[in-house]
Simulated scan of single mutants.
Amino acid sequence: MASAPQLPLFYNGLEPLSSDTHADYKVRPQESAPFLVGQHAIPITVDEFPLVQRHMPIVFSVGDDAIPLALMGLNEGVNVFIGDDGKLTENTFYVPAYIRRYPYMLARLHPDAQELSLCFDPTSDALGAFDEGDALFADGAPTEVTKSILAFNESFEQAGARTQNFMKELRELGLLMDGEVSIQPDGAEQPFVYRGFQMVNEEKLIDLRGDALRKISKSGMLPLLYAHLFSLALMRDIFARQVQLGKTPLPQLGG
């Protein structure tokens, strides 16, 4: 986790969805997500902090363009919530929107384009010229299925913009610091120390006064910061899951 993931994570290519080229395309439900196997850190939006913090630790990538990440494992190549078959191992798990968005994505078709176009990963087997599934177009017009996909992606982009503003404020307030979590398993001589991420400096947060404190209180930022801090306790749960799965933890967060 040395830097923010190179977006778009998961995608092998992007192709604009077109009523001409993809007139006979259908989308079918996916029972597994093989692209998630071995993915340990997933980008999330601030809108998701209250839900994510119940299931996964929330940290921030390192670097000037830091983004929030939900940890599905403490080491690269390890995801403790996804089986080798690409299926979730839990029924009540919150799946981040970044995952649910795949294989679709809003993107600029040209660098100077003003509008975003709905695109998809052509290597995905979720959509294609199938006999079964829900049609994406009917009589040259988007179906309700496509309209719903577009609405979800638009909502995701809006949440992404709010997340960028959140990160900008975090940097301006100087609240981010290099993260470190130490886990001492029973019977181990030395603790496992995880680094390679950023976290909120709780001492600086507590010391905020005046305009700075009022600003984050009014903006709704304060509970999000504490959701992140509270979620760090789940590092030990992820560690225990890795041990249980026989995926020996390493003393850093990969990268």
Score class of each variant (00 low, 15 high):
Leu17Ser: 13
Glu157Met: 04
Gly174Phe: 01
Phe130Ser: 06
Glu132Asp: 15
Leu88Pro: 14
Gly38Lys: 05
Leu69Ile: 09
Ala2Arg: 04
Ala159Trp: 05
Arg209Phe: 07
Val59Ser: 04
Glu76Asn: 09
Glu189Gly: 09
Leu116Thr: 09
His22Gln: 13
Ile99Phe: 05
Tyr102Ser: 06
Leu136Ser: 03
Ser124His: 15
Gly86Gln: 11
His110Cys: 05
Ile183Ala: 08
Val46His: 02
His110Arg: 05
Phe81Val: 06
Leu69Arg: 03
Glu76His: 07
Val95Trp: 00
Lys247Cys: 00
Pro57Met: 06
Pro29His: 06
Gln252Lys: 14
Ser32Lys: 04
Tyr226Leu: 06
Leu205Phe: 06
Glu169Pro: 05
Phe152Trp: 11
Asp211Tyr: 02
Gln244Val: 12
Asp134Leu: 11
Asn153Gln: 13
Asp64Lys: 08
Leu9Ser: 00
Gly179Trp: 05
Asp47Phe: 09
Met167Trp: 05
Pro8Tyr: 05
Leu51Gln: 13
Glu48Trp: 02
Leu136Asn: 03
Val27Leu: 12
Glu154Leu: 08
Pro50Ala: 06
Ser231Met: 08
Leu71Arg: 01
Ala151Asn: 04
Tyr98Leu: 10
Glu154Gln: 11
Met221Asn: 06
Ser124Met: 15
Val27Gly: 09
Thr89Ser: 12
Gly196Asp: 15
Pro142Arg: 07
Pro251Tyr: 01
Leu170Phe: 04
Gly83Phe: 02
Ile206Asp: 12
Ser61Val: 11
Glu15Tyr: 01
Ala107Met: 10
Phe49Met: 08
Gly220Cys: 03
Met105Ser: 00
Met1Asp: 01
Leu232Cys: 11
Gly187Ala: 06
Ser148Lys: 15
Met1Leu: 10
Tyr102Gly: 02
Asp47Asn: 15
Arg195Thr: 15
Val59Trp: 03
Ala227Ser: 12
Lys26His: 01
Gly133Thr: 13
Ala188Phe: 05
Gly174His: 01
Ala161Ser: 13
Leu7Ser: 15
Gln30Ile: 12
Leu88Trp: 09
Pro142Leu: 05
Gln6Asp: 14
Gly83Lys: 02
Leu245Gly: 05
